[in-house]
C-alpha cells in the first residue's frame, strides 16, 4: 500500500513538473513532437531511477552523519552531498548516451543536444535531494519507488504537453506569444488541472 501511495503522490499530486517546477527546460524544449517527448521521458525515467538508487546508497552508507557509514565511522560529510550527487548523475547520463548511440541511433540523433543536457535537468537532482529530505522515503525501496514515480510523472507531463503542442501548430496564436509564451500559458492551465489532484492521499 505504501508503495502505491508514494507512487500516486509523486506522479499526480506532487508532479515534479507542475507542482515542483522541476525539469522545465526540457519540458519546454523537447515537447514539440510526441515520439521525441516519449523518448526523452524514458531516458529521464531511467536516469532518475538509477541516480535515486545510487545517491541513496551514497548518502546512507557513506556520507550520512548520524548512523555512521559502512566502515563504522561517523563522518559528517554532508557538505559533499551536492558534489557527489552531480557526479553520479553526470556519469549515469554518459551511460545512457553511449547506450542510445549504440542501440537506438535515430532517437540519439533526434534528441541531439538535449541528451547530454539531461545532466542539467533539475528534475533528477531535485528528486534525489527530495528523497533525502522526505521522512517517508528513507527506506531503500520507498526511495526507489519515489524516483521511478518522479520519472513517470515527468514523462506524463511532457507527453501531454507534446500532444497539445502538435495541435497548437494549427491555431492562430498572436505573434508575440508564439513559442514560449503560449507554451507557458498552456502549462499553466495544465498545472491548474493537476492542482485538482491535491485531495488524493497526502
Amino acid at each position: 500500500m505504501e508503495f502505491i501511495a508514494i507512487l500516486l503522490s509523486v506522479v499526480l499530486v506532487n508532479n515534479l513538473v507542475f507542482q515542483g517546477f522541476l525539469g522545465i527546460c526540457p519540458f519546454l524544449g523537447v515537447s514539440r513532437k510526441v515520439d521525441m517527448a516519449f523518448g526523452m521521458g524514458c531516458a529521464v525515467t531511467f536516469v532518475i531511477t538509477m541516480a535515486g538508487a545510487i545517491t541513496w546508497i551514497i548518502m546512507h552508507l557513506i556520507l550520512h552523519p548520524i548512523a555512521g557509514n559502512m566502515f563504522g565511522d561517523k563522518l559528517a560529510l554532508n557538505f559533499l552531498q551536492y558534489v557527489a550527487f552531480i557526479m553520479v548523475i553526470a556519469s549515469m547520463v554518459q551511460l545512457v548516451e553511449m547506450y542510445l548511440k549504440k542501440f537506438f541511433p535515430p532517437l540519439y540523433t533526434s534528441l541531439g543536444v538535449f541528451l547530454p543536457l539531461i545532466t542539467t535537468n533539475c528534475a533528477i537532482l531535485g528528486a534525489c535531494l527530495y528523497i533525502y529530505m522526505k521522512p517517508e522515503t528513507q527506506s531503500f525501496l520507498n526511495a526507489l519507488t519515489y524516483a521511478f514515480g518522479g520519472g513517470i510523472g515527468f514523462m506524463i507531463a511532457i507527453v501531454i504537453m507534446a500532444g497539445i503542442r502538435e495541435h497548437l501548430l494549427f491555431s492562430d496564436v498572436p505573434k508575440p506569444f508564439r513559442g514560449a509564451g503560449i507554451t507557458l500559458l498552456v502549462a499553466g492551465i495544465l498545472a491548474l488541472a493537476f492542482t485538482g489532484f491535491t485531495g488524493i492521499g497526502k
Binding site: 517546477f21 502549462a187 498545472a191
Partner: peptide, 9 residues
Amino acid sequence: PPGAFLTLG
C-alpha cells in the same frame, strides 16, 4: 504553481 506559469507566459 499555475499562477507562476501564467505570469511568466
